[in-house]
């Protein structure tokens, strides 16, 4: 993938196709981020799609000199999530959303990333590594994972819960 600054310059000059690598790069993380807010995969995918479109429409306002594209994208998504929560009359704490957004856009160094990947690879039994990779790395929903692995959706949820507990312990 070309570096983001080059891609964004190309988009500024009207090359719409340069937006595709950015959508591919950030879609999984953004959908998971929003799913964690809404607890609803379909709503998360809808808002993620709208966020990408809104970011594209306003991309002239974005400059790489002022920060990362991902930070800007997550802020747009957070604002849209807040609007949807209000519209759906769901209770939430706006400060929590801001803090969550800040956390998600933090930098993590390469060594830590390798440590996390290794911890995932070492999960026991290996089915836990499979479900974590499919959900967090490949962007699959619980339903898709259940279909891929011929499991019940509830079993997938249980595997992810167990895997997260084990990862927390091994990464602390």
């Amino acid at each position: 993938m070309k570096n983001e600054e080059q891609l964004i310059q190309r988009i500024h000059h009207g090359d719409t196709e340069s937006y595709r690598p950015l959508v591919e790069r950030y879609q999984t993380g953004l959908i998971i981020y929003l799913e964690n807010i809404f607890h609803d995969r379909a709503a998360a995918e809808d808002v993620a799609q709208e966020s990408f479109i809104k970011a594209y429409l306003n991309i002239k306002q974005f400059s790489s000199a002022r920060g990362k594209f991902s930070t800007w994208l997550y802020k747009i998504a957070t604002n849209m999530a807040r609007d949807k929560l209000r519209k759906d009359k769901r209770q939430f704490n706006p400060d929590d959303l801001e803090k969550y957004c800040e956390l998600v856009t933090n930098e993590i160094d390469f060594i830590e990333i390798e440590r996390i990947r290794r911890a995932v690879e070492c999960l026991e039994p290996p089915i836990l590594a499979h479900v974590i990779k499919q959900y967090f790395f490949e962007g699959k929903s619980y339903t898709q994972i259940a279909e891929n692995l011929t499991l019940n959706v509830n079993t997938v949820a249980s595997h992810i819960r167990r895997a997260k507990a084990k990862l927390k312990r091994s990464l602390e």
Binding site: R20, E45, I53, I116, F137, G139, L167, L171
Partner: peptide, 27 residues
């Protein structure tokens, strides 16, 4: 933990092509 896992996603991981197509079709 969720944040770390999302950031640790390898760049060559598969993507949801249907999602990408929907966004690109719109833009």
């Amino acid at each position: 933990l969720l944040t770390k896992l999302v950031i640790a996603r390898p760049d060559d991981s598969p993507v949801d092509e249907a999602f990408t197509s929907r966004v690109m079709q719109k833009v």
